[in-house]
Design a protein around this nucleic acid. Structure first.
Lengths: 411, 411
DNA sequence: ATTTATTTTCTCGACTGTCGAGAAAAAAGA
DNA sequence: TCTTTTTTCTCGACAGTCGAGAAAATAAAT
């Protein structure tokens, strides 16, 4: 069936979700604030908050400074002890584990450097299981209290079945996280990293009333990621992370890490730029990892006018610009946000990008898209990670918890 | 706000929509059928049907052959007289006007050949207004009874504001249908033609339980159209028609009708194939129109082994294959349905297509997508046209009509 | 110290929905 | 004429939202 039937119970669930997500967005709200944000009547908010409070999903905050005349407002927030989130960010050199309580505050975090055993999946898997146990051990939390384990990585992700299909780190070695974490009752979520960045950027712009119809977020670095935000027909934001880095740039182009030829990444990823700058043949096996210092040196010589270095960045920009033009053709003209370590070379990439964009039909018609840079990719990923995980977890909780307590209320 | 709040009235509206759309899909249903299809209880269906019946939106069908024992079922269908739809299909040589009643049956249709004045917008506009009046005149229908005028054309369409932005027929001359038809109370809908085809194909496959997660429909002809069907996170089908024909195929490629260079259409559209086959320089102004007979001749000589003709089709297939590979990269691997007059040359296009697809990353990983052909593009466009228009019109009616009659019921 | 003004929370009754169960209707067969 | 069968229709229970106004709790004014 296309669309679910609706019932009065669904209405309550939907509106509870509205209240909870308002709480997530704005931290702590009073009755009246919630009514304003959700456009629900005060009476309804009252009913919902008492229900959620009784179920232990939200809690009244302790007193706070008087705000003026009148009855003091009581603020609600998601109940800290309701459950916990574990966020795992897998990046090329390090795996970061974060523990977050239900109110969204970071409780604990540590990094696990991936040493020489970097690329072995079984070693990584064992390390991950240990790290997870250590994380909850340090805060004396039981496994059952962990509502979700949300994992992010660059690469190709099977969101439906929580399988990492291809990643820069592990290549073609699949990881089935659903299976790996089968001893955990928590919901397992797997995300493409740039998807999370896009989500965070979108919410951020939404708050500033600055979100257009849609939005593209590009992460530039050793690999190239794209996240796309669109408003669905019902008005919700849908975020996707297409496999942009490995979209065909040009037939018979440079050899890519993925084994194909002519991917965008093979021109625009750090290893691609390096290869061009040093005039290494384009079918050379890509470097596993290019230190940022190395890239900085190439950029330096490009800024000093060295020909091949300049050319390398220009070609990278060209591939990026043409790739973006294709994205615009297949969606619509939308603002582009660049992030990731590669943004520091934007001055060198720009000319090629503009050239690559200019000749295409969508740009000829609608003009250049807005292109802006955004720093702190790590922070954005973390924010997006939380948002994404809570979206799911809150939904889970609302479908299970309050009805159970409704039975208690009756008994 | 992200998502609308829910209320009991919205529940009724939603479920009424479910009932009505079941009626649209299956023609005429009894109480019990509707309950089965919508998963609503018999009591609810009863309430809804009496309400819709009273409001004149659906009607009981006259008697029908006894189906066996038991109380005879009463069948409902959308009420013929509830309103009318006008569907206008603008194609390169002809404009087709169709009048459809609220039950979806075709009442009247005529074609208006666009003569020498073909490309002049004011002439076309005047002609269209006249044709619309003639259409309703012939069936003695008043303007107010026309619920929607749904227009389709190839080209670039601004769905939000009903403006035809660029079309093969009128080029850069915009047509603002909202303005042109300002004397009509009907809702104005403007669609890209391939969007409609995709919609029809999707519903067709859905009925056969054969619809995968998503689907791409390509229309091959003088121009190239793409429609993409995706399931949104809430499970509804979202159909979009990206500007595929004018996506960048290759930098500095052949001159396209749109004025840009290297668009897919410039290689794969009929005029592109013609240009290559006859070794005309790729920056030659494209032919306005290529008769099918002309294409058939080129195909004939290609099948007889003539080199340039074969090459032309191969290049066209290559551009198509590479373009599709990019679509798969930016969405996911999905089945591809080919339609339109160009499918008769599929034997000649196939080799290039496969080559263009094979080298790309998504195909290397997931294998070749399912590619199938479908005839009767005109029929599909008509079906999709109806579906699309009724989706909108039914929604409009449900938000307005039944509540008004609820007041009557009280009085 | 008491009153007044102000702001927020909470409660009540009216209304609109859905649902299950079973009554009523209508036809075919015994 | 009675029984069986199938479908439609109705009724009461239950769940949810909403507006209005009561109740609560504080600051300012007297």
């Amino acid at each position: 069936m296309r669309v679910m039937k609706s019932s009065t119970e669904m209405v309550r669930q939907q509106n509870s979700g509205l209240v909870l997500s308002a709480l997530r967005r704005f931290g702590a709200l009073s009755h009246t604030d919630m009514a304003d944000h959700t456009h629900l009547s005060s009476a309804t908010v009252s009913a919902i908050t008492t229900e959620l409070d009784r179920a232990g999903i939200i809690e009244r905050m302790e007193q706070q400074a008087a705000t003026g005349r009148g009855r003091p407002r009581v603020l609600f927030r998601p109940s800290r002890g309701c459950g916990y989130l574990i966020l795992v960010r897998i990046s090329s050199d390090v795996v970061q584990y974060s523990l977050v309580d239900y109110a969204g505050t970071l409780m604990d975090r540590f990094d696990e450097a991936r040493g020489a055993s970097a690329t072995d999946v079984t070693v990584f898997s064992r390390g991950m299981l240990e790290a997870l146990d250590r994380l909850i051990g340090r805060s004396s939390i039981s496994r059952d209290a962990v509502l979700a384990i949300s994992i992010s990585s660059k690469g190709l992700v099977d969101t439906a079945y929580q399988r990492l299909v291809w990643s820069p780190v592990f290549g073609d070695q699949e990881i089935d996280f659903q299976w790996l974490l089968r001893d955990w009752s928590a919901r397992i979520i797997l995300n493409n990293e740039t998807r999370l960045t896009a989500q965070a950027v979108a919410r951020c712009l939404e708050k500033k009333q600055d979100l257009k119809q849609s939005l593209a977020v590009l992460s530039l670095g050793h690999s190239i990621g794209l996240g796309i935000v669109q408003r669905s027909s019902v008005g919700a934001l849908e975020v996707t992370a297409p496999n942009f880095g490995h979209m065909l740039h040009v037939a018979n182009g440079g050899l890519c890490r993925c084994g194909a030829r002519g991917c965008i990444e093979a021109s625009t990823g750090f290893y691609g730029i390096l290869r061009t700058a040093f005039e290494v043949p384009a079918d050379t096996i890509p470097a596993k990892f290019v230190p940022l210092a190395e890239m900085d040196r190439i950029a330096m010589s490009a800024r000093q006018g060295k020909r091949m270095a300049t050319y390398a960045f220009r070609q990278a920009g060209l591939a990026l610009g043409q790739g973006i033009s294709r994205v615009l053709s297949l969606h619509e003209t939308m603002p582009v946000v660049l992030t990731g370590p590669g943004t520091r070379y934007y001055d060198l990439l720009q000319a090629g990008m503009v050239e690559g964009l200019a000749q295409s039909q969508p740009v000829r018609r609608e003009g250049m898209p807005d292109i802006s840079l955004m720093d702190d990719e790590a922070g954005l990923v973390f924010e997006g990670h939380k948002q994404r995980a809570f979206d799911d977890v809150d939904q889970d909780i609302l479908t299970l918890r309050p009805s159970a307590s409704a039975a208690m209320k009756a008994g």
